[in-house]
């Protein structure tokens, strides 16, 4: 892998790391997500520290241009993540709806008692 890609990945990994730590500290990121992102960050850091890993893996997979592997992994990961978020969103929507219904029922009961 070229050294400029290498540097780019290193910068990204470092930036991501600081951001995650900061967000967790500010308590705006839930722990479960911080674990996820920290794992990604560490993965990035490892790959940028030892780019031979990527080169080796790409070779084994018959990928000539190594960054392709990196992109492939990245896109795959993002897709999975989006699916996970869709799932969480659907679940959240259901919960909100149920809550709203509950509020309406309670409000009616309250008004009747008064």
């Amino acid at each position: 892998m070229s050294s400029s890609t290498h540097i780019l990945i290193a910068v990204l990994a470092l930036g991501a790391f600081f951001l995650i730590v900061r967000l967790v500290r500010l308590k705006v990121l839930k722990a479960k997500y911080s674990i996820l992102w920290l794992t990604v960050g560490s993965g990035l850091a490892i790959v940028s520290a030892v780019p031979q890993i990527l080169d080796w893996a790409a070779e084994r997979l018959d990928i000539w241009y190594q960054p392709t592997l990196f992109l492939l992994l990245g896109i795959g990961f993002l897709l999975l993540l989006c699916m996970h978020f869709s799932y969480e969103l659907s679940r959240m929507e259901n919960r909100i709806r149920t809550l709203v219904e509950e509020i309406a029922l309670l409000k009616e009961k309250l008004e009747k008692e008064n």
């Binding site: 709806r97 709203v100 219904e101 509020i103 309406a104 029922l105 409000k107 009616e108």
Partner: peptide, 25 residues
């Protein structure tokens, strides 16, 4: 009448489900 009011618009489906829920209870 019994009036069930929700804090924001859920659409007619959501409104009906609440109506059914009330009737069921």
């Amino acid at each position: 009448c019994v009036c069930l009011s929700m804090p924001f618009n859920l659409g007619i489906g959501g409104a009906l489900r609440l109506g059914f829920r009330y009737c069921n209870e």
